[in-house]
């Protein structure tokens, strides 16, 4: 559900929604879940926002949907590995 929610929220705010990819990486960095969201390089500014504001908003909403589970979100462009 978290992957799908993040994908929806991000697709709605970028210019290239079809380039948005979200996947979950579990347990790689301590407890909790890491969601990795990839966007078109030209949309990076949009998902991060001024002074990281949009990234913070996405983390806040996903944190609320996850309840007591810890969630991390990493933002990458589609070419990063």
């Amino acid at each position: 559900m978290l992957e799908e929610a993040l994908e929806h929220l991000v697709r709605g705010i970028v210019d290239n929604p079809d380039d948005v990819q979200v996947r979950t990486r579990s347990g790689r960095r301590g407890p909790g879940t890491t969601l990795e969201v990839r966007v078109n390089p030209s949309d990076m500014g949009r998902v991060i926002g001024k002074a990281g504001r949009t990234a913070t908003s996405l983390r806040t909403v996903l944190g609320a949907l996850a309840g007591s589970r810890a969630v991390r979100i990493d933002f990458l462009d589609v070419h990063e590995r």
């Binding site: 705010i13 210019d15 926002g49 949009t54 908003s57 806040t60 909403v61 609320a64």
Partner: peptide, 23 residues
């Protein structure tokens, strides 16, 4: 859950919704 403490989640969701509308 969507309101959060002091409306923190609500503000975040409003922020994202405005961006979606702006786009």
């Amino acid at each position: 859950a969507l309101v959060g403490d002091d409306g923190e989640v609500l503000d975040a969701l409003q922020d994202l919704t405005r961006l979606a509308v702006t786009r």
